[in-house]
Amino acid sequence: MSNPHDQPDKPTFTRDGLAVSRAVALALAPVIVPQSRELRERIPVLPEAPGPWRGAAGDRGDDNPIRMLVLGDSTAAGVGVDDANFGLGGQLARALNEATARRVLWRASGRSGATARDLIARHLRPALREKTTLVFLSVGANDALAVRSARGFRRDIEHIVGKVFGAHPEAVLLMSSLPAFFRFRGLPEPLRSTLYRHSQALEHEARELIDAHPRAHMSPPPPPYTEGFFAVDEFHPGAQGYREWADFAIADALTSPVGTLLR
């Protein structure tokens, strides 16, 4: 991003506007599909962070650590960094340890490009086999890119939530808000605003589910992205971006109703 302060104002959509987000995207397909194709050809494809996707933050003497699973798409897979400790999982563990003084044992599961349906099909069941006290879910960006229906996305999130608490009823689930696509300067119009509108429709459905659960919380929309937030593809976070995201998400979670469950 050229200037962190030179960012567009946040678009606002009515409930009716969100309800037709998919129809709008499909109607604009003759324009936005070629734009998407051109972007894929231009944007460098960054690899997932090398394994292992697990680590620890904090004092080894802590006999009651937080056991955190980061479940999701390319962000869970550490795309944008070359060391998973500087990706989302490692940075969330650091931020949570610094804020609570509790040891955090973290691991990540997912893959670049994954939708919520992909997580259910390939990653959810094996990821939940290990003891888990906190799940951080980062998904939805690829569902928006694929123009998944909001109703289908809601069913998938409901399934994930049910499986998480079915396997670990005393766990806490944190879900990240979807990316603020309207601030992605590398996306041309009308692709940028169309993608943001549909992502907000998906987020609205997920937020209703998450907010209704006493042990779950969804973070608010992110603050403006700073200079240096993005990796070289200007789409995924880099090390600085993951750090800022983690600090924001953990600070917000600890002041939410589930915050007492994490201290």
Results as ranks from 00 to 15, higher is better:
residue 129 R to E: 15
residue 255 T to V: 07
residue 2 S to W: 06
residue 34 P to V: 05
residue 106 W to T: 05
residue 169 P to F: 02
residue 79 V to P: 01
residue 207 R to A: 11
residue 111 R to A: 12
residue 154 R to H: 03
residue 187 L to T: 06
residue 54 R to C: 15
residue 211 D to P: 03
residue 263 R to C: 11
residue 59 D to R: 10
residue 50 P to G: 09
residue 99 A to L: 05
residue 261 L to R: 14
residue 136 F to H: 12
residue 174 L to W: 02
residue 153 F to C: 04
residue 131 K to M: 08
residue 248 F to R: 09
residue 112 S to P: 10
residue 15 R to N: 11
residue 238 G to E: 00
residue 153 F to T: 01
residue 123 H to A: 08
residue 230 F to E: 07
residue 208 E to Y: 04
residue 34 P to H: 06
residue 257 P to A: 02
residue 78 G to Q: 07
residue 87 G to H: 12
residue 174 L to G: 05
residue 131 K to S: 13
residue 236 H to M: 07
residue 148 R to S: 15
residue 227 E to C: 08
residue 105 L to H: 14
residue 15 R to F: 07
residue 57 A to L: 07
residue 233 D to L: 01
residue 57 A to K: 08
residue 155 R to Y: 08
residue 165 F to Y: 13
residue 234 E to M: 10
residue 103 R to A: 15
residue 108 A to I: 00
residue 75 T to E: 15
residue 130 E to P: 05
residue 235 F to H: 02
residue 100 T to S: 14
residue 103 R to L: 14
residue 118 D to Q: 09
residue 217 H to I: 00
residue 254 L to E: 13
residue 138 S to M: 08
residue 18 L to Q: 02
residue 25 A to L: 10
residue 50 P to T: 10
residue 44 P to V: 00
residue 7 Q to P: 00
residue 163 K to F: 03
residue 109 S to T: 04
residue 157 I to C: 07
residue 20 V to N: 14
residue 160 I to L: 12
residue 221 P to L: 05
residue 32 I to N: 11
residue 217 H to V: 00
residue 135 V to H: 04
residue 40 R to C: 05
residue 112 S to W: 09
residue 145 L to S: 15
residue 46 L to V: 14
residue 161 V to D: 11
residue 111 R to M: 08
residue 82 D to V: 06
residue 3 N to F: 06
residue 249 A to T: 05
residue 238 G to N: 02
residue 192 R to L: 02
residue 57 A to T: 04
residue 245 W to E: 05
residue 55 G to Q: 12
residue 126 P to W: 08
residue 145 L to K: 15
residue 189 E to D: 13
